[in-house]
Nucleic acid binder design. Structure first.
Length: 358
DNA sequence: AACACGGGGGG
DNA sequence: CCCCCAGTGTT
């Protein structure tokens, strides 16, 4: 693709900044855009709608107001503030990065793009976002919104994931941001993609770039960007045991940090069709039919979990810890989606996604 | 280049 | 039910 030329970019920049100054949303991290706030917001917003991230951001910043505050705690203390947001590696990487900042940068978030970009969990997008928004550097960003806006503006018919289109998109974003108010410019393009140049029904009449947009001229802007076919999610059947200790507390298991639902708690279980498979975890099912069966869809797997009543003390499997948890203490625990769904369906009262110990 | 990695909101 | 979201790290 042919990237935006500097003169084109300058004209678009002016229109975008004017539009943004009138239509920017009031978001919590914009009220006090110190680097830590911007950084946390960018991590939370990865593959996550802004509206979903907002309550998590508020709780997280209240508990961890600085990188040092985050660096000072164990990762287990961080999970409750991330439980329900998904992509838990983000929390682990942010925690690790906060420790890098605390130890090797004296608690100061690096303002050098090269240095900041080397931190855990900081990729090309996050580097550009934090450097431009928090420090005013002319660093580009390309996220899903920018891809959509630029592919329509420039009528890009090729797969946006392909290397040549990626190069063109980043070059165009770099041309756009190479001027005044780089942070506002980057946010303007993203904001436009999120609120006007939307995937299904863009409201082109409200768009500051409508006169220049090639896809709009064709009459079918929603046709772009082209989306590659998606692979079907794998079906996975699991059995899980609902077992209690002598005091009536519920046995839970904690996932290893790596992998799906890393660090999160769940009912002890494993992939299987037969409840007898639970004996591998030290549990004996006490009924032939499940108490309940829950369905849970991830982007790449579809789980069907049959929950059986069981006795015994769980051990082994792929878990890093087992704990008998009184029902009243379930609120404070980072529970994975399937476990939360199952326990609620069984009548246990567990508060909505937390902010534990606030 | 392809895949793993969550969960929810909206068509 | 499917799509998509202020992406990154691994293979």
């Amino acid at each position: 693709m042919t990237p935006l030329s500097p003169p084109e970019a300058a004209a678009h920049r002016a229109a975008l900044l004017d539009w943004y100054s009138r239509h920017a949303r009031d978001l919590p991290w914009r009220r006090d855009p110190r680097p830590w706030h911007v950084w946390v917001s960018e991590i939370m917003c990865q593959q996550t709608r802004v509206s979903s991230a907002i309550p998590y951001f508020e709780r997280f910043i209240a508990r961890f107001p600085t990188p040092a505050a985050l660096a000072a705690v164990d990762i287990e203390a961080v999970y409750p503030y991330w439980a329900g947001l998904g992509y838990y590696a983000r929390a682990r990487n942010l925690h690790a990065a906060a420790r890098q900042v605390a130890q090797t940068h004296d608690g100061e978030i690096p303002s050098d793009p090269e240095v900041f970009g080397a931190l855990k969990g900081v990729g090309r997008y996050t580097r550009g976002a934090v450097m431009s928004i928090a420090f005013g550097h002319r660093e580009p960003v390309v996220d899903g919104n920018v891809v959509r806006v630029l592919c329509r503006l420039l009528a890009v018919e090729a797969d946006p994931r392909s290397a040549p289109v990626q190069r063109g998109l980043w070059a165009s974003a770099a041309a756009l941001v190479d001027g005044e108010r780089p942070g506002d410019l980057n946010q303007a393009v993203m904001e436009l993609g999120a609120t006007v140049c939307t995937p299904k029904s863009p409201t082109c009449l409200l768009c500051p770039l409508q006169g220049a947009c090639v896809a709009r001229a064709t009459g079918q802007p929603e046709r772009l960007p082209v989306k590659p076919a998606r692979k079907a999610a794998a079906q996975v059947a699991l059995v899980a045991g609902l077992a209690r200790d002598d005091a009536g507390a519920l046995w839970l298991a904690r996932n290893p940090d790596q992998g799906l639902l890393g660090g999160q708690w769940r009912l002890p279980g494993l992939p299987a069709d037969d409840p007898q498979a639970l004996t591998a975890l030290g549990l004996t099912p006490t009924a032939a039919t499940p108490l309940i069966t829950v369905h849970h869809a991830f982007s790449h797997q579809r789980w069907t979990v049959a929950v059986y009543p069981a006795r015994g003390t769980p051990r082994g499997g792929d878990f890093v810890e087992f704990r008998a948890v009184p029902e009243a203490a379930l609120d404070g625990l980072p529970l994975g989606g399937p476990a939360l769904k199952a326990l609620r369906a069984l009548g246990l009262k567990i508060k909505a996604r937390r902010g534990a110990g606030r």
